[in-house]
């Protein structure tokens, strides 16, 4: 078995003190930059992005894969970053909302969300946009119903769904 670079104990630590010492080395490639980190193996990719790397654009909603707020791309595919350990992503290419576009050079989905007013409070928006950007490269039918089905993993409590669908359809019609 290929050992992880830093020793992890076979038995759980008896106290929180030793738990804090249990750090693993991992190098993540996030938004094109490689970052070497020492992290607790329990750290989800979501918490690693937000708490360790301070990339707080990715949001924590339910933390159980039921809302989609934490959606990021791993090797070009959308995933729930709350349901995967960061140490499992050595060498993977991770894209967050911070890496999708920049002020002045927005991703087409970001621009369309602005134009279509595809949000209210904005909390689910980074996840919605990451999901929509990935959808563009997936097999997905042409109708609004197809888009709704493909976007069902992203919950919006404000109910901005109609404008989210129109924003995505606008981008797809331009491609």
């Amino acid at each position: 078995m290929r050992p992880t670079e830093v020793f992890a104990p076979a038995e759980p630590p008896a106290d929180g003190q030793s738990a804090r010492k249990n750090q693993l080395a991992v190098t993540l490639r996030v938004n094109g930059e490689s970052v070497a980190l020492q992290i607790d193996p329990r750290t989800t990719l979501l918490d690693c992005l937000r708490e360790t790397m301070r990339l707080t654009g990715t949001k924590k909603g339910c933390d159980h894969g039921q809302c989609g707020a934490c959606t990021v791309h791993v090797n070009g595919r959308r995933v729930n970053s709350c349901l995967t350990f960061a140490v499992m992503h050595q060498g993977d290419d991770i894209t967050t909302i911070e890496g999708l576009g920049r002020p002045g050079s927005l991703h087409p989905v970001q621009a369309a969300f602005l134009e279509h007013d595809a949000y209210q409070c904005g909390y689910c928006t980074p996840g919605q946009i990451m999901s929509a950007a990935a959808l563009l490269e997936e097999p997905c039918g042409a109708t609004d119903a197809d888009v709704k089905e493909a976007m069902s993993g992203n919950i919006c409590r404000c109910g901005a769904y109609p404008n989210i669908v129109s924003a995505i359809q606008d981008v797809r019609s331009e491609r």
Binding site: M1, P3, A8, P12, A19, V87
Partner: peptide, 15 residues
């Protein structure tokens, strides 16, 4: 979440 030891299996037999 409880602490655990993390490892990567190098092969099926390893796992």
């Amino acid at each position: 979440m409880e602490m655990f030891a993390f490892s990567e299996a190098a092969g099926v037999e390893d796992a």
